[in-house]
Design a protein around this nucleic acid. Structure first.
Lengths: 192, 192
DNA sequence: GCTAGCATGTGGACCAGTCTGTATAGCAGG
DNA sequence: CCTGCTATACAGACTGGTCCACATGCTAGC
């Protein structure tokens, strides 16, 4: 080895931030390079398949962050309903703090590339699966019906995902906390 | 007047289809022209503010189609819950028929441009407002609590919106019908 | 009722800039 | 000295947008 690989991480992180705000096609590789401070050579050294591979890496990176946050909340909060309520509040706060620019970190890229790009679709599938699995485990641990749990978990992710779109367009994050609270009530009812 | 304006409509319709599948930035004006059969001059004749104005027109066009569908269902189906269940089935069918390419017709463009582009954001706001208003009216007509109705309507749109993203990535439309059915049960409970 | 003039819309050539991706030279560390 | 990485110059395709000559069909004036 030589010259520590300083740039790979910065490229992925910068790409994730930019894709989240302006979308995949709306973000040029040059912009990723400017923001990350990496030279073009490094980009194609780490990502020989080019931009699409960066899209995949960015989704994996951002997806893991969300999974980690959900897992942490699951440990901290007493019930699955409270996990969801708290996560809704977190999302609403981030949205407001960014002037309604930072929505879901993977949705935009996925909508632009899925199902056309297989690699990106697979990364998105893994991310969504991990998120729903985390909620599903929490529901099962709280005594929910094994048939009902996965469906409720998917509903929660879908509702939050959609609420983030509405909130961004309406520049009002109420819909996010409201949706989280409503589905959380369903969680409560299913684990009582 | 002279030379009947043949091309405007075709430009908007083609743009709506393309934006829905590949996103706004991922669709070039040349592609819109090829698909619509219009010449470049016509595009900038009808849309002097260029591509962004087409994005706005495409959102208005697609938004009105959805509003119309929801209004029609509201007349045909006995309860708001049944409207939602039926609409979920329609969406799932369209998604499957298009090999999971045709999701929500306005989400992708909105996520790419909102809140940066004011015109596009406003068009999206109007579309979402019309959709939720249609469901809200149905809920109120069925005797739902005036405080609860708008919130339930927003939840329904958010859940469907998010479910369409999940379904497209997972190439499985079950989540759409499931989400619609779950929220429809809430509609039923609120109008009983 | 003819025609000149005019607004509306068509068709496409063209431009400057940007895009993704390639090629290759240089550099640091084992 | 060889390998992993950095750094930059460059290429070809394509982008959104401008411009202008031309076709079309209504209307005012005679």
């Amino acid at each position: 080895m030589a010259a520590a690989p300083r740039h790979r991480e910065k490229i992925v992180r910068s790409a994730a931030v930019l894709f989240r705000r302006q979308g995949y096609a709306g973000t040029g590789t040059s912009q990723i390079l400017t923001v990350s401070g990496a030279p073009r050579g490094s980009l194609y050294h780490y990502f020989p398949q080019g931009k699409e591979q960066i899209g995949q890496a960015a989704i994996e990176y951002a997806g893991d962050l969300v999974t980690g946050t959900l897992a942490r909340l699951t440990e901290q909060r007493p019930t699955p309903g409270d996990v969801l309520r708290e996560y809704g509040r977190l999302l609403a706060g981030w949205l407001q703090d960014s002037d309604y620019r930072d929505g879901c970190p993977i949705t935009t890229t996925l909508l632009e590339l899925a199902p056309e790009s297989e690699g990106v679709s697979a990364a998105g599938r893994r991310a969504f699966a991990a998120w729903t699995a985390t909620l599903e485990q929490a529901l099962l641990a709280a005594g929910a019906d094994p048939v009902r749990a996965p469906r409720l978990a998917s509903l929660a992710i879908a509702a939050l995902e959609g609420a983030l779109v509405l909130a961004r367009v309406q520049q009002d994050s109420t819909v996010v906390t409201d949706a989280a609270d409503d589905v959380a009530d369903l969680f409560d009812a299913a684990t009582r």
